[in-house]
Design a protein around this nucleic acid. Structure first.
Lengths: 337, 337
DNA sequence: CTGAAAGCGCTTACAG
DNA sequence: CTGAAAGCGCTTACAG
């Protein structure tokens, strides 16, 4: 039989009110009384029912998190970052996915409306945006983890895609490459434009230009990377480096180059974006722009918890910086005579 | 302002009892009344408060899931499988990790005791086993997803490690290899023994024997795979195939062989276990024994939900079969004259 | 077929 | 410093 506050009160010969007071560390409880109550609590192993507390207090100490899918290569890191801070603050994490489509969103909306959680963490909502506006406007604190650079209307945390693109260009130029190709992400993603712009800017600064024929749109899959390279090799101008807008694409680029008999990094240098686990295991290991995924998760969760604690929403997206991770795929060529 | 059952009752000119009845599709409600109530519900967008329902009914329609870490390469698939069935049944998924050690476990135990969920899904509890016994004995339905082959005392779902090991051996022998090396998982994991035994059995059946000097213990990291191979190459007898007990280890094996100048699959064939996303992107792509991770998650969640619905606990672990995924790393050698 | 009332396990004014 | 009572938003015997 579960022990309740009434049982504790009975055993400690006080009212439920008093037990509640010591439970919540309110002042104005006689020291001796408090000790007695604490002893009973310890002896019975009493833990307040989360549901009852939530109902009485109007909060759940739970945050919801809605993600498009759990199998994406970078999702684990984000989740871990979120879980770390959420748990350390004593909150629960209620996870939902959108990948059953409308069904999931319906179910999810129910949970929201059922007040199953106090705040909401969102990863890159696919087409749920209008649902979200409603939620947000109805007072539910929302923070989005934005890997697409959409700069949403809600508080969000993202990464510096422009700076990342610039770092990639700088690095490729430093290793002596001059004919730079790019396989981008989908053109309607904000991050694609940002990465491309940062990249382009550095190239221009170096007195070079980006050949438009060397910019191919991909879709963030390795298949698209391989296809892009094969196409480039067949019909495009020569190039000595490829910047892929994510690591999966870069892996496809490596595969394509290998099939075509080009060596990396001797013939062509390849750089990716993300630094997913795969990146260090490709052949050759992949130079990439690291997204601080875990830190993004931590930051987002921290921001949400702050808002639940009453902090105002920040007026601009929180941006965590990328960093360059150099591996074999961009090693400087041995200079030829 | 949130709309409550009282508000719906007032507008529909019935009692809360009646509203509750139509909400829960009980019989014995006048058709016209029911329609009227439903209209009010639709008009107000009323959704019952999950907390209040839970308190009144004594259940939360939420399952907890405790995982050692979210960044493990195969965790995403398992989570996705779990989330799919849990969500499709209208349950919530409350996620916790153990990776803050004792803290997390304490927090988690609180949630359990606070009755924050109806049942519990466990991934390979590190040292939480005795906590678990207590929970389970106290009536909380528990299902463990077992990737270590410990054959726990609770209902569990696992994979057929023995059969997987056998399939690996069979495949390597079929490609003409005869001197088989193995880099195992930690020796105290049940899956290590099972994979090894299945492997060994097939080898014996083929009239060959496993050279004990060609069996090295690893720890499931790529570093351990690379180290094992380098050691074998330096001090061990010759070998023409390696079975690594997981894909990460196999990736290390590939790296070690490459450093030593051995080619795969020409000089040495390599097979892994798991089929994590990495496996198809190594060079050469890795033949591996696929663990049906997502299916394991689905099965475990289904089992738990069945138990919540009153089904008895199965008396034996549920075992989902592995399958062989053939890629380049074990391609048959072109026969030499 | 329907409703008043008690109860789920807490918290929180309010009164003393 | 302490407790009785109302309330959080539901469900469920029970009575009609």
């Amino acid at each position: 039989m579960r022990v309740t506050i009434a049982e504790v009160a009975r055993r400690a010969r006080v009212s439920k009110t008093t037990v509640s007071r010591v439970l919540n560390n309110k002042a104005d409880v006689d020291a001796a009384t408090a000790i007695r109550v604490r002893e009973v609590i310890a002896a019975t192993g009493y833990i307040p029912s989360a549901g009852a507390v939530g109902l009485a207090r109007g909060v759940t100490r739970t945050v919801g998190m809605l993600v498009p899918g759990l199998t994406w290569p970078w999702m684990g890191e984000v989740l871990q970052g979120v879980a770390d801070v959420v748990e350390s603050k004593g909150y629960g994490l209620l996870l939902s996915t959108t990948n059953r489509g409308t069904d999931s969103l319906g179910e999810f909306s129910r949970q929201v409306s059922a007040k199953a959680f106090d705040g909401l963490l969102l990863v890159e909502p696919p087409d749920a945006v209008r649902h979200l506006r409603v939620l947000h406007d109805s007072g539910l604190p929302v923070v989005v983890i934005d890997d697409r650079g959409r700069r949403p209307a809600f508080p969000s945390v993202g990464t510096d895609n422009r700076q990342g693109g610039a770092a990639a260009a700088r690095h490729l130029l430093e290793t002596g490459r001059t004919r730079l190709a790019t396989v981008t992400g989908p053109h309607d993603f904000g991050c694609t434009a940002d990465r491309l712009n940062g990249f382009n800017e550095v190239v221009l600064d170096a007195g070079l230009t980006l050949d438009p024929r060397l910019i191919i749109e991909g879709d963030f899959t390795s298949e698209s990377g391989e296809a892009a390279i094969l196409q480039l090799l067949e019909t495009g101008p020569e190039f000595d480096a490829v910047f892929a807008h994510n690591d999966l694409t870069a892996a496809g680029v490596l595969a394509g180059l290998r099939k075509a008999g080009r060596t990396v990094p001797e013939d062509v240098a390849v750089a990716g974006f993300d630094d997913i686990p795969l990146a260090s295991h490709t052949q050759p290991p992949l130079t990439t722009i690291r997204q601080p995924l875990r830190q993004m998760g931590e930051t987002a969760a921290g921001l949400l918890l702050d808002r639940l604690a009453g902090a105002p929403a920040p007026d601009a997206p929180l941006i965590v910086p990328t960093s360059l991770v150099v591996r074999e795929s961009t090693r400087r060529r041995v200079s030829r005579p």
